[in-house]
């Protein structure tokens, strides 16, 4: 699936997007998998309260299932307007 990062999440990880092959069943499982990869991921995902997730461009939650999802995006709380 495509995993996208925005704002300081993108800066901490050092990539705007990447393709990840995963068997993670939920967003939380994917986060744990990424955190275990490298320090920069652990740093980006260290405080989940300051993170939001979108699945196929819709705001979602960390316990949401990933079955059938093509695009996951992680970003901080939005600051539009």
């Amino acid at each position: 699936m495509d995993v996208l990062y925005f704002a300081w999440v993108r800066e901490r990880i050092g990539l705007p997007r990447e393709q990840i092959d995963t068997t993670a069943a939920t967003v939380m499982a994917l986060i744990e998998e990424l955190k275990a990869r490298e320090e920069r991921y652990a740093l980006a995902f260290c405080d989940l309260k300051s993170l939001r997730v979108a699945l196929d461009q819709k705001l979602s939650s960390f316990d949401a299932p990933l079955a059938g999802v093509r695009e996951v995006a992680f970003f901080p709380p939005m600051t539009g307007g």
């Binding site: 925005f6 704002a7 705001l59 970003f75 901080p76 709380p77 939005m78 600051t79 539009g80 307007g81």
Partner: peptide
Amino acid sequence: YLKSRAPFWKKEFGHDGATWVAA
């Protein structure tokens, strides 16, 4: 709703460097 439900993120550049605007 645009303020906190539309996916925009603001970064400010000033004398002391750049900071992301916190919600």
